[in-house]
Design a protein around this nucleic acid. Sequence first.
DNA 1: CGTTAACTTCACAAATTCGTGAAACCAGCG
DNA 2: CGCTGGTTTCACGAATTTGTGAAGTTAACG
Lengths: 166, 166
Amino acid sequence: MTEETGRPERDPEGVSRFVEHFAAQLVMAGMPRMPARVFAALLVSDTGAGGSAELGETLRISPAAVSGAVRYLDQQHLVSREREPGSRRERYRVHGDQWYEALTNREAVIRRWQDALREGVASVGPDSPAGRRLGETLAFFEFVEKEIETIMERWRAHRDETFGRG
Amino acid sequence: MTEETGRPERDPEGVSRFVEHFAAQLVMAGMPRMPARVFAALLVSDTGAGGSAELGETLRISPAAVSGAVRYLDQQHLVSREREPGSRRERYRVHGDQWYEALTNREAVIRRWQDALREGVASVGPDSPAGRRLGETLAFFEFVEKEIETIMERWRAHRDETFGRG
DNA sequence: CGTTAACTTCACAAATTCGTGAAACCAGCG
DNA sequence: CGCTGGTTTCACGAATTTGTGAAGTTAACG
């Protein structure tokens, strides 16, 4: 029997399975493979952060792959880079409990959908059948944009209640 | 000057621009190129439907490409196929004003995220820092899953008010 | 029952994407 | 001021994806 620590131990095999399964979800959501795996690996790390070497080893990928993945994640605002002063090691950190907010906060993305739809309405005419269909879709996006803000506020309240002073 | 019809005319060039721009958004959201273009083309058509030949011509793609695209869209429940009795022409139709509901109603998808996260919590232990982070993320997805239902109800009410008896 | 029109399937060629190894780069440290 | 460990950039080879042409399938018509 393994040593009892008073706290359940990490199950390396299970962790690895999680990384791959969670990464698969991210890939299905449109994220490239390597960034997805790196992000998942950071998520399960106790510190929520890790260096290039560490990530490369656990995922069995080259430093170059880690570098590329981190660049992507950085651009998506899903991780931040930290320079530990005194060491040339760099640390990549998941944005704590806010990364999923970033996922939903795709304000610029929604804006582009709306722009495209407005363009469509203009080019078919707002009173044509197609124009009405596009107009309604546009209204949907505008509605959702507002509602998402509301949801996030409600979530923060719910989170504070559940975790903040749990 | 072109003939006045009493209703603004379709601007073919503008329509084409819309198709490409809207398709680009879909591609960024993870949809393959051809399905995205076919879907956009159906969206701007006045009837909301079209045959393989018609789509192939306006998009300048082969019948095979249309076929593949439609198969994809059908699997995603974004279009339905209709057999016009009496003609061997098949019609593909966008699910009217409900396609974007399908986009957000990814119940099965959310479920898979949750499953992956539960697996992660189990393998690192719920009381570890990583376990707490994953647990909170899981709570977020559970929260969102419920909220989405609420949003869609509110949307339908809002839509009926705005369009239903506008 | 053969012909024909529309759609689908299949195999291949083209184009992208992906990850690696190797070289370049950068910042501490001696 | 040169060394050293760590990260990034670059170019290439591999693997996956994508769209096409051509053959195959199905169903309406004469």
